[in-house]
Computed example of a mutant assay.
Amino acid sequence: MNINITLRDPIASDANVFYEHQADPVACRVAHFDARTEKEFTQHWQTITSRDDVKISTIDSDGSVVGNLVSWQQDGQRLVGFWLGQNYWGKGVASRALELFTQSLPRPLFAYVHTSNIASQRVLEKCGFMLCTHVACDNEQEFLFRLD
C-alpha cells in the first residue's frame, strides 16, 4: 500500500488526534509509555508548543492526521520522537516521515527506544540512526540511537 504523506505545522485540532494516538493501549504497551489523561496531555501540549527549542510536525496523508514527529533539546542533546496512529503501522509511513523531518534538523540527533520496541528500532535504522548504547531508565531498558 502506497500512502502519500506530507509534513506540516500542527494546527489546534491535530492535538485531539495526537491525544487519541497516545491513549491507545496497544501503542502504549509497545512503546512502554504511560498514556496521559486528557488534562495532562493538554498541559503537556501547551508546554511543548510554547518552547523555542521544540520542533513539531504533523504527518498528514490526504488531509488525515496520521501522527506526529517532535524534536527537542534535553541534556545537551537534540532528541527526536515519533508517534503514529495504529492504522498506519507497518506501511513505511514512520520511516518516510522521519527521514523528511530530520533533513532540516542539526546533527547529531538522538532517539531513545525501548529495547522491546523492534518496529521503532527498525524505523530509526532505516533513517540512518546507529545504535549507541544500552540505557537503564526508570526500571526500563532502552537503546540510545544516534544520527550524525
Rank of each mutant, 00 (worst) to 15 (best):
G81C: 07
V66G: 07
V93P: 07
P106V: 08
S50K: 11
D62H: 05
V93A: 01
D34S: 12
R29Q: 07
Y112T: 05
F110T: 01
A35C: 02
G81E: 12
L109H: 02
Y88E: 07
Q103L: 12
L84A: 00
L79R: 10
A31P: 01
Q46E: 15
S50Y: 02
T47K: 05
T58W: 06
S104K: 14
G92Y: 01
P108M: 10
V70M: 11
V65A: 13
S71H: 10
L84H: 01
L79F: 13
L105T: 10
V113G: 10
F41W: 09
W83S: 11
S61F: 06
V54A: 03
A35E: 03
F101R: 06
S57N: 15
T49W: 04
R51P: 04
S95I: 11
S50A: 13
W83Q: 03
R51Q: 14
L100T: 06
H32W: 01
L69W: 04
Q46F: 14
L79H: 14
Q46D: 15
W83P: 00
L84Y: 00
A94C: 02
R36V: 02
S71T: 12
S64Q: 09
L105K: 07
R96W: 02
D52V: 06
A35W: 03
F33S: 11
W83R: 08
S95R: 10
L69I: 05
Q46H: 15
I56H: 02
A97Q: 10
L69H: 04
K91Y: 03
Q46S: 15
G85R: 04
F82Y: 14
V113W: 08
G85E: 00
I59H: 04
I56S: 02
F33Q: 08
H44S: 14
V30T: 14
H44F: 15
G67L: 04
L105V: 09
L109R: 04
A31E: 07
Q73D: 13
V93M: 06
V30F: 13
N87Q: 13
E38A: 14
S50T: 13
Q73W: 13
K55Q: 13
G76W: 11
D52E: 12
R29C: 10
L109T: 05
E40R: 04
T47H: 04
Q74R: 10
V70P: 00
G67N: 00
W83L: 09
T47A: 01
I56P: 00
S64N: 12
Q74H: 12
Q46C: 15
L100D: 08
V93L: 01
P108D: 10
K39G: 02
Q77K: 15
K55F: 08
V54F: 07
R78S: 01
D75G: 14
G85Q: 03
A35P: 08
Q74A: 12
Q86H: 12
E40G: 04
V66Q: 09
K55P: 01
D75S: 15
D53F: 05
K91I: 02
D52Q: 11
R51L: 13
T49L: 05
V70S: 08
S95H: 10
D60L: 12
V66F: 03
N68S: 14
R29L: 09
H114M: 08
S71M: 10
W89Q: 11
V80D: 00
V113Y: 10
K91E: 03
G81D: 15
G76F: 08
L84P: 06
R36P: 03
F41I: 02
